[in-house]
Nucleic acid binder design. Sequence first.
DNA 1: CACAATTACGAGGGTCGTAAAAATG
DNA 2: CATTTTTACGACCCTCGTAATTGTG
Lengths: 285, 285
Amino acid sequence: MLELNQLKQLLTFAKCETLSKAAEELLLSQPALSRSMQKLENDLNVILFERRKNKITLNDNGKLAVECAEKIMYDVQNMIDRIRAYDRSKHTISIGSCAPAPLWKITPLLSELYPEFTLSANLNDHEQIINGFENGTYSVIITAKPIEGENVICHKFCEEHLMLSLPPAHPLAMYDKVDFKTLDGETMLLFSEIGFWYNLCMEELPNTRFILQHTKNDFDTLVQSAALPSFTSDLDDNNQQTNRVIVPIKDTKANPTFYCVINKCNREKYKEFLDLLKNFYIYTI
Amino acid sequence: MLELNQLKQLLTFAKCETLSKAAEELLLSQPALSRSMQKLENDLNVILFERRKNKITLNDNGKLAVECAEKIMYDVQNMIDRIRAYDRSKHTISIGSCAPAPLWKITPLLSELYPEFTLSANLNDHEQIINGFENGTYSVIITAKPIEGENVICHKFCEEHLMLSLPPAHPLAMYDKVDFKTLDGETMLLFSEIGFWYNLCMEELPNTRFILQHTKNDFDTLVQSAALPSFTSDLDDNNQQTNRVIVPIKDTKANPTFYCVINKCNREKYKEFLDLLKNFYIYTI
DNA sequence: CACAATTACGAGGGTCGTAAAAATG
DNA sequence: CATTTTTACGACCCTCGTAATTGTG
């Protein structure tokens, strides 16, 4: 009977062009591969190779077989991926969030309520998060705007208040509050993994030079040691650093309310979580 | 590694619903199948079955896997068929003809010229023959009309003259010639495997009752022993039967010229045959 | 003479079948 | 108690690797 192994070997041969090279790539002795390809021809009842004394090449049949085999191996891999993803989807809760702070709150909640599930969290901008929710990548999302729709359940989750973190000597440190317009033009330290905040910064502070930092630890260390402004928020546990002055930002956009969104068809699955959400927003204020 | 064998076994199990029945159908012991399905789960790294003490059923993953496996097995069979058909097409000359008589001439010619090829001949009506030529089913066709086209080579091949074969006592036996109109209304013996002649008979002789015969031998025997008119032609080797009067049919449609048509891209392949065709028509008159 | 493919042959791993165990209706 | 699945165990087949052969550039 024809087997996938043989098709894989055929494809490797097609790529490598000689049996010996293919055998090496397949971690197989060359005679073994030679025999296997003979068996393939036997199974198909079709000659696939043109054999000369010390050279073997694909004939027209073989070339067609390679074409077909490529498609099949691709489909098989697809099947495997699909099944695994489907299985995984039943053991994991995929959370998509447009900001990091709500994740710090929601992750412990869900892992306590559903200890048998694996949590998988992703940060991204608004559009990507909503896309992921609609195509099923995320079963729970956190957005900065309420989501309407027949099939969704949308709860207020929490608020976040963006603040400037400044070295005491900085001119802005004397203000009670600032707005983006006043702030624009500085050189700032910015942590890059912040979901929708990133695009917001780029839009609201077009003249600011951001020094990006991709790891949170490095970012926190730099904030401590560099005399540069950076952002923090009331939800950030690191916002009470020494030697920094904290100044709230006035703009509405800097003080978002986050919403937790779940598909109605998951209502039963997330029953306990939804019960908790009803009181959560009030509770955390 | 995942193998097709396992997918086939999975599909059989899905159909039979118990391992024992599936094992029986697969000509395999039931423990072997049980192990094989365990290995499949291992290869996929996904649980496919819900196991109770004396019952095993597909879970959701398993159902999805069955769906995918069906598609894959179908594609694989398709690949095999395609490759075999392609191989076969290079070792066979497929002839389509709208009438049997030209086949009796062309078949020996081709098999002598191309002894390394297998001949495969089909009779059908005009439309089907031309369809088959265009979609590549036939590489050589015989038609009753010349075929025009940039990509085709069309040669006159031979003529055929349809005749009535009558018992001597039949009223029409005294005629030198007859036409369809005169003939219509009789009861006739008709051999059914005659390509375009069949439709022609139905159109030209709407009031004739045909007694159809599907095997040539039986037909010839019946013609000998029954006092019924039938058709024969100058190309039919059996047309000189005893106790029958032969009367030509006048109508143009009863005296067709047959054409042999080949695709220009096969010009090289059929070089020898084409050379022969140039003189063939004149030669056979 | 290096390299490529095939053939021959013995070793080892994987799959098979039988037998036994466990559980169910 | 018949039926179903799983586990245990020994047998066997198939594929593997090594070695040898043949042929080419």
